[in-house]
């Protein structure tokens, strides 16, 4: 059965590129671009992994991550955080709030694929 990933990211061309490489790798890819309604989208799609950008319209990825960890239904859901701000503080926040992995932009496609496989043990 194909693994399902929800990509929460607001840059259209990054969405297209990541969707393409993950689809080619056998993933079912859903995408969502708004922070405010992201939690509802997670509940609706029930993904195996979430790729979550930090800077989203209307709501921060860190806030969404905290909500995911506070909800018993998603507290163990693997989350790969993406950010363009590779600062130490962002990395510390990602770890504190329970991100499974943290990746700074720009990243390589191979790096994304490898991390996704590790997160789902495939």
């Amino acid at each position: 059965m194909r693994k399902r990933v929800l990509l929460i990211e607001d840059e259209p061309n990054i969405i297209q590129a990541i969707s393409f490489i993950l689809s080619r790798d056998g993933w079912t890819v859903d995408t969502h671009a708004d922070g405010q309604s992201a939690m509802a989208e997670v509940a609706r799609r029930t993904p195996d992994v979430v790729i979550l950008d930090v800077m989203l319209p209307n709501r921060s990825g860190f806030d969404i991550l905290q909500d995911l960890r506070a909800d018993p239904a998603t507290e163990k859901l693997p989350v790969l955080m993406l950010t363009a701000r590779g600062q130490k503080r962002d990395r510390e926040l990602a770890e504190r709030y329970g991100a499974s992995r943290f990746m700074t932009k720009p990243f390589s496609n191979a790096e994304v694929l490898e991390t996704m496989r590790q997160l789902t043990g495939t």
Binding site: I14, A17, A84, K105, F107, N109
Partner: peptide, 25 residues
């Protein structure tokens, strides 16, 4: 300044990921 740098890095990421697809696929 922070928003400008974020915009630059996001654009570079999109170019990098897309170019890699064209080269590697």
């Amino acid at each position: 300044l922070a928003a400008s740098l974020h915009d630059l890095l996001s654009t570079v990421t999109a170019i990098n990921a897309t170019a890699s697809i064209l080269v590697d696929t």
